[in-house]
Amino acid sequence: MSESPALLVQGVRKCFGRSLIIDGAELQVDAGQRCALIGPNGAGKSTLFNLVSGRQRSDAGRILLHGQDITRASPQAINRLGLARSFQLSSLFPRLSALDNVRCALLWQLGYRYAFWRRLGRLPELARRARAVLERVGLAQHAQVPAAALSYAHQRTLELAVTIAGDASVILLDEPTAGMNRAESMAMVALIREVSAGKTLLMVEHDMQVVFDLAERIAVMDNGRVIACDSAAGIRANARVQQLYLNRSVHGA
């Protein structure tokens, strides 16, 4: 029997009032694959991310993580099953240091629960693991800097560190290079490629150079549906995709 896809979205629908946002979306991401989700603004990409990660509930359809139905699961339960995500807007604790942000992300995995009487500084294994994560993403020298005091690029890197801290097998990244200049974007691409090695990656990204540099498969959304899912070469050659979204960016990428 073949291995189940890492992530499988089947006939998912989502309405907000009378507005149909996701209209029978279908998507398969195989284990170890890097897939980018692209499409014009309003296509439903962020909503689909929210459905997959449990932040919102679909009205119909199924979502499977490694063959297990997570359609109605809570975000916490989905995370414990091996899926982690980042967000478009910062989800960091701005007053906490970079180290403490990562330590908070590691608490549950190491068997600790949030408790007001427990001092993080008295958990040496937690600190060791958090420092190792910061070292991996190149932020070790900023371990004691409050998240709010970091540069924008370093804040985005810390977001990535928090996302990968729990060693999830499936990683969702929502516009990881948004707001970065070209040099920062290319550095982030290299870092994502390194930390996602051997894992499954699904990302929303508008920078087409980042998409073509990083993704092995590209899924294109329009009006709440996935209208194409192919290799980079296949997407480049898809006339419907070019007309809808890529236009000259395909040829200039």
Rank of each mutant, 00 (worst) to 15 (best):
N247M: 12
A183T: 14
H206Q: 14
E3K: 14
Y245R: 02
A190C: 06
S151A: 08
I22P: 14
N50M: 09
L139S: 01
G39L: 00
A143W: 00
G198A: 15
V195T: 03
L65E: 11
R131D: 13
Y152V: 07
V195Y: 05
V145H: 03
E135T: 12
D30M: 06
V12I: 09
R34S: 07
M208E: 11
F116T: 03
V250N: 11
N41L: 01
E216W: 00
M203A: 11
F16R: 04
R118A: 07
L89S: 15
V170Q: 08
R95H: 08
A105V: 00
P5V: 03
R72K: 07
M180Y: 10
A237R: 14
F212H: 06
L126R: 08
R129D: 10
A36E: 07
V195R: 02
V220Y: 02
E216D: 12
Q242D: 13
G82V: 01
C229T: 06
Y245Q: 06
L214A: 05
N181H: 12
P5E: 04
G82E: 09
L107T: 09
F16S: 12
A253E: 14
V52A: 01
G32A: 08
S151W: 02
A197K: 10
A215N: 03
A143N: 01
Y114W: 13
V241A: 08
L158T: 04
E135G: 13
L64H: 07
E184M: 06
D174H: 06
L7Y: 00
L64F: 10
L48N: 03
Y245K: 05
L8K: 01
G32C: 08
A153E: 14
G44T: 00
A153W: 01
V9L: 09
L191C: 05
R136Q: 09
R217E: 10
L158K: 01
L126C: 10
Y112P: 09
A165D: 05
C104Y: 02
H154D: 15
Q109N: 11
